[in-house]
Design a protein around this nucleic acid. Structure first.
Lengths: 268, 268
DNA sequence: CGTTTCGTTGAAGAGTGTCAAGGCCAGTGG
DNA sequence: CCACTGGCCTTGACACTCTTCAACGAAACG
C-alpha cells in the first residue's frame, strides 16, 4: 500500500507543484511533512491589477510575495521625487525582501500587467525558518542572491555604455523567459521605454534610439513592445565591450572569466 | 552574589563588548547564555595588510567577517576586466554576505589600510541562527539592510549628476564616521580618487574636479585625502538637486519625504 | 633620493540629455 | 464603425555633462 513517496508527494503538492515557483520556493529534497508545512504557509493568494501597487514604500512589512503570474517593477524614490526602477519581476520571483530590514517596505512594487501572487506571511515564514533548517538556508540564500544580482546592476550602471546596458538587459530578459519555458528569442516588453531607461540609468529617448540602432544593425527586430532577437552573439559581443574602439582585451586575459560578474545572467 | 545582570554581562562580554561591533553584531536584549554562545562564534581574528585581499571572487565561502578596525572596499569585475567598487566598509560592518548565494564569494574584498577582522565561520553561524531565533532574525535583517543600501546606490548611479553623487558620498561617509564616534566634519579618505570614481560611476578626473569645485565654493576643504566639511546644508542642497537649474520642486511636494530614499543615509 | 603612485588641471571631443514635433496604437464615446 | 483622445514611441537638432588625452605637481615608498 503506497510506499512510493513520489506518488504521495504528487497528491500533497497540489498548491505548489503545478506552480512556476517550485524550483525557487521549494528547497530540494523536502520530506512529506515539510511540504505539508510549506503549503500551509502559502495559503492565500492575491490579484493585483495592472498599474496598481502590491505595496508602497512606507507600508508596514507583513509578507513576502511569490509571483505566480504577471510582471512587476520595483522602484525607489528619492526625497526630491526622482524615481529609480530597481528591478523587474516575473513569475517565480520572490519580492518584498527589502521590507525585512526595517519592518517597512522601502520600495514601491507596481504591477505592469495583471498579476497574481502567493502571500507568504512574515510571521509564518519566521516559524518555518526556525523549525526547518533547509527552509532557513534557502531563505538566506534568496537574500544573498538578491545582493549578488544588485552587484551586477551596479556594475552595469557604473561602468557600461548605453548600448552595453541595453544589450545586457535584453539578453537577461531573454534568459529569464527561457528559464520559464517561454521563447528566448521573441518576447513582449511589459514595461515602457521610460521604465527601461530608469532601470538602466538612461533617458527614454536614448533607450529608443539604441533599440533602433540594434534593429538597424540586424541584432534585433523591434516593433513597439515586441522584440525578436536575431543575433545573440552580436549582443553578447556588445556587452563585453567588443565594439571596434575597444582596448581592454589585454585585461580580459588577466582575470579568469569564471570569477567575473556575468552581465548576462546576474542582472535578473 | 551578583543578581545584577548588567555586571555579569560586563564580565562575559569581554570579546565583543569593547568592540565597535556591539550595536551591529549583538541583537538587543540577549541573555547571558546567548552572549556566551555568541562569543564562542567569533573566536578567531585575522589581520589583513593594506592592499591584500581578505577574499576574492571565486574563493570558497566559509565565513563572514566583522570588521574590528580598518577600511576595505569590495569590488566586482566584469568578464572583460572592468572593475566596479560596490561598497566601502569600515569598523563594525559585516562583510561576505554575497558568498552565501552560491557558497562562493562573488566579489573581491580588499583592505585599503591595515585591517583586523573577526571571523564568523559559516558553519557555526548556521548553528547559531538555527538555535537562537533572535540571532536568525538579526542575520536576515542584516542581509535585507544590504539590499536596501544597494537600492540607494542604484538610485545614485541611475539618476544623479556627478556633483550630487559626490555630495551624497561625502555626507554618507561623514555620517558613518560620526556613528563610530569620529568627527563628522573632518576625516581622511582611505580610498583613491579612482576608487571613489568607480563606486560613483565617474572617472577619477571628474571626482577630482568636482571636489575642487566644492572646495572653491567653500563647501569643503580638500587636501589630498584629507577632507573637512564646511557647509553641511550646502552639500545637502546639492544632493536634493537644489542647484539653480532645478525644477523638480513640484515633485517634491507630491511624495512625503518619509518614504523616499534618503541619499545621505542609505548608501553606507 | 629616485621611483612610483596618486592627484590636479586644461583643452578637445564623445556620448547622453533636453527640447520639440510627429506618428502609432488602444481604448472610449459618439 | 469611425473619430477622438491620451499614452507611448520615434526621430532630429542642439546643448551640456562627463570623458579622454595629456602634462605637470605632490605625496608615498623603498
Amino acid at each position: 500500500m503506497m510506499n512510493n513517496p513520489s506518488i504521495n508527494m504528487a497528491t500533497l503538492r497540489v498548491a505548489c507543484s503545478n506552480c512556476n515557483l517550485r524550483e525557487l520556493c521549494l528547497p530540494l529534497g523536502l520530506g512529506l511533512k515539510e511540504i505539508e508545512r510549506l503549503e500551509e504557509l502559502v495559503s492565500t493568494r492575491k490579484r493585483v491589477k495592472r498599474g496598481d501597487a502590491l505595496y508602497r514604500a512606507g507600508d508596514k512589512f507583513e509578507a513576502l510575495y511569490a509571483i505566480r503570474l504577471g510582471f512587476l517593477k520595483s522602484a525607489v524614490m528619492s526625497s526630491d521625487g526622482r524615481e529609480q526602477v530597481t528591478s523587474f519581476h516575473m513569475s517565480g520571483d520572490i519580492v518584498g525582501l527589502d521590507g525585512l530590514a526595517g519592518m517597512v517596505y522601502s520600495s514601491d512594487l507596481i504591477a505592469l500587467e495583471d498579476t497574481e501572487v502567493c502571500i507568504l506571511p512574515y510571521e509564518r515564514m519566521q516559524e518555518l525558518t526556525q523549525e526547518m533548517h533547509t527552509m532557513n538556508m534557502h531563505f538566506q540564500k534568496l537574500l544573498s542572491m538578491e545582493i549578488v544580482r544588485q552587484n551586477g546592476v551596479m556594475l552595469l550602471l557604473g561602468s557600461m555604455h548605453a548600448e552595453e546596458r541595453l544589450a545586457a538587459f535584453i539578453l537577461n530578459l531573454s534568459q529569464r523567459f527561457e528559464m520559464r519555458g517561454y521563447s528566448r528569442s521573441e518576447f513582449v516588453l511589459r514595461m515602457t521605454r521610460a521604465e527601461i531607461g530608469s532601470y538602466l540609468g538612461l533617458k527614454l529617448e536614448t533607450v529608443s534610439r539604441v533599440l533602433s540602432r540594434f534593429s538597424h544593425d540586424n541584432l534585433i527586430i523591434v516593433n513597439q513592445k515586441h522584440v525578436q532577437i536575431m543575433d545573440f552573439e552580436g549582443l553578447r559581443a556588445i556587452v563585453s565591450g567588443q565594439t571596434f574602439n575597444n582596448q581592454n582585451i589585454a585585461l580580459k586575459a588577466v582575470k579568469p572569466a569564471a570569477t567575473g560578474i556575468d552581465a548576462l545572467s546576474d542582472l535578473d
